[in-house]
């Protein structure tokens, strides 16, 4: 078979596999790709993941097709000599095309991701931790409900400075309200990952990592630690809830009453803590 025939067969197979993969992964399964659609951020993340998957599938199909085609058609015979193929030298068109296509893909993806991070999804940073001085903020960031996320081996607690600085092991946020998470740690590095909210921010001792989110429907979301943090890292989970505004008011009032005794012992609200125990290990 001539080289031209091999090329035609390979292109047809590649095209066919690409179409099948795109239909199955993007069209049929795309809707169910995490993290869901609870917030602007998760919708933006979902769109990014689906888009990147759609772009990556032809590349994946090309590699698979080439490997399979070569394994079937260019096998060395068992009793024949072991020989290498002829080197391909001086093919400037191929080299330029290769560099141009891959450069366009990488730079295009970088631009797409950066634009989406800074200006997409209501300009809220797509749920990422942005450090103490976030660049991407929602329009009414000044009115956002502040919730401090405190990580320590191997539990989460949450502090609400607008409600007397009460600290609670439960996380609830009101629907339709901008929420400003301030993520920090009391010991080692953890990572606050509220999966269905599309929020992920590192929890670093002595650092304030801010992430914004606005949930637009009620429901539950999983919280996990996403940074290997010691023996019980895999158990450092909890469940949060997005609730209606009146339910939230009732709940936070109950937490203030329930933990009134211990709230008096807490240090004043601060974006970071690093209190030393008496004996200090």
């Amino acid at each position: 078979m001539s080289e031209r025939s091999h090329l035609r067969n390979f292109l047809l197979l590649w095209l066919g596999l690409t179409v099948v993969l795109e239909v199955v992964v993007v069209v049929i399964l795309g809707h169910d790709i995490p993290p869901g659609s609870m917030t602007n951020d998760t919708r933006a993340q979902h769109d990014v993941i689906v888009t990147l998957t759609a772009i990556a599938l032809p590349v994946l199909a090309m590699v698979w097709t080439y490997l399979a085609y070569a394994a079937v058609n260019f096998r060395a015979s068992a009793d024949g000599p072991l020989e290498d193929g002829a080197p391909d030298r001086g093919n400037a068109r191929l080299q330029i095309a290769w560099v141009a296509v891959t450069a366009c893909m990488v730079l295009g993806l970088a631009a797409y991701g950066s634009i989406d991070l800074l200006s997409g999804a209501g300009s809220s940073g797509v749920g990422s931790g942005e450090g103490p001085n976030p660049l991407a903020k929602p329009a009414n960031a000044g009115k956002a409900l502040q919730v401090q996320v405190i990580a320590q081996q191997w539990v989460w607690t949450f502090r609400y400075p607008a409600y007397g600085g009460v600290e609670t092991p439960m996380l609830e946020i009101p629907v339709g309200t901008d929420v400003e998470f301030h993520v920090t740690s009391l010991d080692v590095v953890h990572s606050f990952w509220a999966i269905e909210l599309g929020v992920k921010a590192d929890a670093v001792p002595g650092a304030d990592n801010v992430a914004f989110v606005t949930a637009d429907r009620t429901g539950s979301f999983q919280v996990r630690c996403n940074e290997l943090c010691g023996l019980w890292h895999g158990h450092m989970n909890t469940t949060g809830h997005v609730v209606g505004a009146s339910v939230f008011k009732q709940w936070i009032g109950g937490q203030e009453s329930k933990y009134a005794g211990v709230t008096k012992q807490l240090p004043p609200y601060s974006t970071t803590y690093y209190p030393q125990p008496i004996r200090n290990g």
Binding site: E167, G261, L266, R279
Partner: peptide
Amino acid sequence: DTATGLRNPFFAYVR
């Protein structure tokens, strides 16, 4: 054992 003290005073509360 003797006291070390809590890094997070929240855990002084019985739950």
